Simulated assay, not measured.
Amino acid sequence: MLECVLATDAALELIEQLKVKHGPLMFHQSGGCCDGSSPMCYPDGDLIIGDQDVLLGRIGDVPFYMHKNQYDYWKHTQLIIDVVDGRGGMFSLEGVEGKRFLTRSRAFTTEENEKIKQVFEA
């Protein structure tokens, strides 16, 4: 199955560390206001998910959401969540670890785009 969101080994390792400290987690791809356009990691349930949020998939068994309006811009890409040194979003859990999650991406092929349409636009 084609995945809309993946995570690097480094990101998966940090997710596991954060689970130990904080319990169940959730991700939401920030829309660009206060924290830029970053993947934000929260304790599960700390951010209220609405009707306009799209579940893109799971990374490290953690749900990853994006607002529908932003998804319309990103729907042609596969998100690859990575981690780098430095402080990221001030509300995201990894900041105190001296790390930040970072979204990388790659464009889907024509065939992959057709498969994605079947899943998200059905």
Rank of each mutant, 00 (worst) to 15 (best):
M1N: 05
M1R: 06
M1V: 11
L2D: 05
L2W: 05
E3N: 10
C4N: 08
T8L: 08
D9P: 13
D9M: 13
A10T: 12
E13G: 09
L14Y: 08
L14D: 04
I15R: 03
I15C: 04
I15Y: 01
L18N: 08
L18K: 11
L18S: 07
V20M: 13
V20P: 09
K21I: 10
P24Y: 00
M26R: 02
Q29A: 05
S30G: 14
C34K: 06
D35Q: 09
P39A: 02
M40R: 01
C41W: 03
P43F: 01
D44E: 12
G45D: 02
L47F: 06
L47N: 00
L47E: 04
I48Y: 02
Q52R: 00
Q52T: 00
L55S: 01
L56T: 03
G60W: 02
D61M: 09
D61I: 07
D61P: 06
V62L: 01
V62R: 01
P63K: 04
P63S: 03
P63N: 05
Y65N: 00
Y65K: 00
Y65S: 01
H67M: 00
K68L: 01
Y71M: 01
D72H: 01
K75S: 03
H76I: 04
T77P: 00
Q78V: 09
L79F: 10
L79D: 03
I80N: 11
D82P: 05
V84P: 03
G86F: 14
G86W: 12
R87D: 15
R87M: 15
G88Q: 08
G88C: 10
G88S: 10
M90R: 13
F91C: 06
F91S: 09
E94A: 13
E94G: 07
E94L: 11
G95T: 15
V96I: 15
E97Y: 15
G98A: 15
L102A: 11
T103C: 14
T103M: 14
S105G: 09
R106C: 07
A107D: 12
A107H: 12
F108G: 07
T109N: 11
T109D: 12
T109F: 09
T110Q: 14
T110K: 14
E111H: 11
E111K: 13
E111M: 11
N113P: 00
K115W: 07
K115R: 14
K117L: 13
K117W: 10
K117Q: 13
Q118R: 12
Q118G: 07
E121L: 06
E121W: 07
